[in-house]
């Protein structure tokens, strides 16, 4: 008899605990979802507004468009210039892809040297490199512009790509060095016993181990270069070489009355590559960020 009583007693407590736990979960998720929606609202508004006419954008509060009209997209894509956005997207990729390639190669090489080799002045060089991270990019614009002017490289993509080939994106070097420091050296010693030289070691052992960090570098560099406005603005003067970020700007200023619907529609399209790259790399990217202790 006493055994039965105690058994139901225990059951009652469990039931109460389960209900409490469930209620907690519901509250937690409701709060999180609400916060998420608030933060995403501007994005929803942007997408909604891309289907609206100017009048509707400035009069309606809600983001839901009254009709699903794709004409802003078509108009925006055509632009008021002689080129369509196909050209501008193509231009953007002409900058982004080579820049990513040279960034990854140069940063991995420099990070490998800093993390794994002993050489004279290593500590000082590393602190100088980290110090340049604090330097605002804008300070470098004028000397860099003059330099590229002397090299006769203005109005080409070279000034936008070439600096990255010398591991000047110190933030990436720093991130890779930190990641490499976290990888135990045993595997490299085993590879050394197996007969690897320094470059074979880099290619066969280090690069595969660095993969998550390299993917983070690719994603960051893709998004940052895609969104870069100042760089192309300074170095590029012919419209046929403009990337998306600049082309968006001229579609605002070129005509007397701005078709906001078209501008917004193209903004939405301009977001797509970055979002696509982020989601494609998400799994590895998050790995890399987590293990370098870096916030995304």
């Amino acid at each position: 008899m006493s055994a039965t009583t105690s058994a139901t007693g225990v059951g009652a407590v469990d039931h109460y605990e389960v209900r409490k736990e469930r209620l907690n979960t519901i509250i937690r998720y409701t709060l999180l979802i609400t916060m998420g929606l608030i933060m995403l609202y501007p994005l929803f508004w942007l997408i909604g507004a891309s289907f609206k006419s100017n009048a509707e954008i400035f009069t309606e509060v809600g983001f839901w468009p009254s009709r699903l009209d794709f004409t802003p997209y078509i108009k925006g894509w055509k632009t008021s210039t002689e080129y369509t956005f196909t050209r501008y997207f193509f231009n953007s990729f002409l900058i982004v892809i080579p820049r990513i390639i040279v960034t990854v190669i140069s940063c991995v090489l420099v990070a490998y040297a800093f993390a794994r080799f002993d050489f004279w002045g290593k500590k000082i060089l590393f602190s100088i490199m980290v110090a340049t991270m604090m330097l605002p990019q804008i300070v470098l614009r004028i000397p860099q512009y003059i330099m590229f002017q002397h090299f006769d490289m203005l109005d080409s993509y070279t000034p936008l790509i070439l600096p990255s080939a010398f591991a000047t994106d110190t933030f990436f070097v720093f991130m890779l060095v930190q990641f490499l420091r976290g990888i135990p050296r045993d595997m490299e010693e085993a590879a050394q016993m197996d007969g690897c030289n320094s470059l074979q070691m880099l290619w066969y052992i280090i690069v595969p181990l660095l993969k998550p960090a390299i993917i983070s570098v690719i994603v960051f560099q893709f998004i940052w270069t895609m969104n870069d406005f100042i760089g192309p603005l300074i170095y590029l003067s012919s419209v046929d070489k403009y990337p998306v970020s600049l082309a968006l700007k001229i579609s605002i200023g070129a005509t007397e009355e701005v078709e906001w619907g078209s501008v917004i529609a193209i903004s939405v399209l301009a977001l797509l590559p970055s979002v696509a790259v982020f989601f494609a790399a998400q799994k590895h990217f998050v790995d890399g960020v987590a293990s370098t202790g870096l916030k995304g």
Binding site: D186, E189, A191, P208
Partner: peptide, 9 residues
Amino acid sequence: FQNYALYPH
């Protein structure tokens, strides 16, 4: 090696 040091990839 003590912790085997196999190449994980």
